[in-house]
Design a protein around this nucleic acid. Structure first.
Lengths: 250, 250
DNA sequence: CAGTGGTCTAGACCACCCG
DNA sequence: GGGTGGTCTAGACCACTGA
């Protein structure tokens, strides 16, 4: 309908990848199943090693399969956590477990590691939003079931939070938002910007991401009722581990 | 701190990829610039062709570069559209006869192609949410600046919308939401589920996605004030073309 | 220790793009 | 027409996994 005159046959490696993908998406191969390996593909299709690898690399880069050294290539599993953004009170009546995508129980326990708190000169965008050249920065990594799933970097105006528990590892009951409330700057309004992209190398390492896994980058700004920005939080989520949910009225 | 005892040197192709990535992210190479090609890398590093290709494929799969046959490999450009979640669906907008998409593009021209409207038996999840075994389905593709950026599939309960403009290509002023309002089922609440993943093959084709581009999958359910689900809309967005924004109160 | 995936070489032919 | 990326072969050595 809109393509060039002669549609050429797909190359071998792509046809093999298509067949394997079909098997995965149709459910013939299930979570954790082993795919035919390089040697199996070479024998089955009479192709060279590099070609078999190329076929498998397609699926790996699509996030459908994960290679395991010395073992094989396996169908990847997808068990997302549901993260709630806005949740209006009015939701009660029409919330009835009607999710489009399945996800694990919402209350799975998470752990925090690699906590890091520093006073820094703010990046330009952060400085502009917070109207503050210096910031306290809280960096954290969250894990669920022992697997890292999220990186978080929070920025607070230095002058505002100086000397409070926000500058210490233990922020006390209620966390940083409760402490901001103590200061008379309780967050009342949030803006979240959501993007998706392939991870940078340090994100790949910190989140232990296999190839073919995008990240979701969330930039959240917290404002007081008076409209003062009091926190800028940049989060990087393993896209394979999350479903974001936003509820709102028209 | 948490790695194995002996960190081995990264392989050649990875070091080359790292250097090129550095050049891109630091701004030494800018949008649309040409990267050193396979031959250049072979000469510069004294490596085989396959190794040079491997280095470039890393950047391509990361979405940082795009190969162009017979020409070269180029730094990829980003030009995201801001899509407003909670704000964009304000009742005023669609009651004034404006389509939702207007506020998405912020002034950039858009087109709709491949419109497709059918009466179908609903998939299980959709049938459950809409409480209707049969649905009218509106499939569309949106383009901005001549580039496809979004696929959209809307489902409506067949019994509700039968015979209305929702089952026709031209839905009239205000679009489908205004028509639902005419029926006394104006949407009042929305739930959006957001995921990111690598695209399926048909999405790659329909959105003309280069390698290394994730998609954002949004599942939106529209409810009336009485809590009746009246629309399930599944959207697939080119992740490189979008920033989602959600504003909400705590 | 046999099998697996990870890396790399040295060739080859092709389609495509641009000057 | 010369250079580019796209595909493919036929080898090689290595590190890791698992029975």
């Amino acid at each position: 309908m809109q393509q060039s005159p002669v549609p050429p046959d797909p190359p071998i490696y792509r046809r093999i990848a298509d067949r394997l993908r079909e098997a995965i998406l149709s459910g013939d191969l299930r979570d954790g199943d082993r795919l035919p390996g390089e040697n199996a593909l070479m024998a089955e299709y009479g192709i060279a090693r590099a070609t078999a690898r190329q076929a498998l690399s397609v699926l790996i880069n699509e996030g459908l399969a994960v290679p395991k050294r010395g073992s094989g290539v396996y169908v990847r599993l997808f068990r997302p956590i549901r993260r709630h953004g806005s949740r209006r009170l009015s939701r009660r009546q029409w919330e009835r477990g009607q999710a489009i995508w399945d996800s694990d129980t919402e209350g799975r326990p998470y752990t925090v590691d690699d906590v890091n708190i520093d006073r820094e000169v703010a990046e330009e965008a952060v400085a502009r939003i917070l109207d503050s050249a210096e910031v306290w920065v809280r960096r954290r990594r969250y894990s669920v079931d022992g697997r890292p799933v999220q990186l978080s970097v929070s920025h607070f105006p230095a002058a505002l939070v100086e000397g409070t528990a926000i500058t210490r590892e233990d922020t006390g009951p209620g966390g940083v938002y409760a402490r901001l409330g103590d200061l008379g700057h309780a967050p009342a309004h949030f803006t979240e910007e959501v993007r998706a992209r392939m991870p940078h190398p340090h994100e790949t390492v910190q989140l232990d991401l296999p190839a073919g896994t995008p990240v979701i980058a969330i930039g959240r700004v917290a404002y007081t009722a008076a409209g003062v920005a009091v926190e800028v939080n940049e989060m990087i989520l393993d896209a394979a581990s999350y479903v974001l949910q936003y509820d709102f009225d028209s």
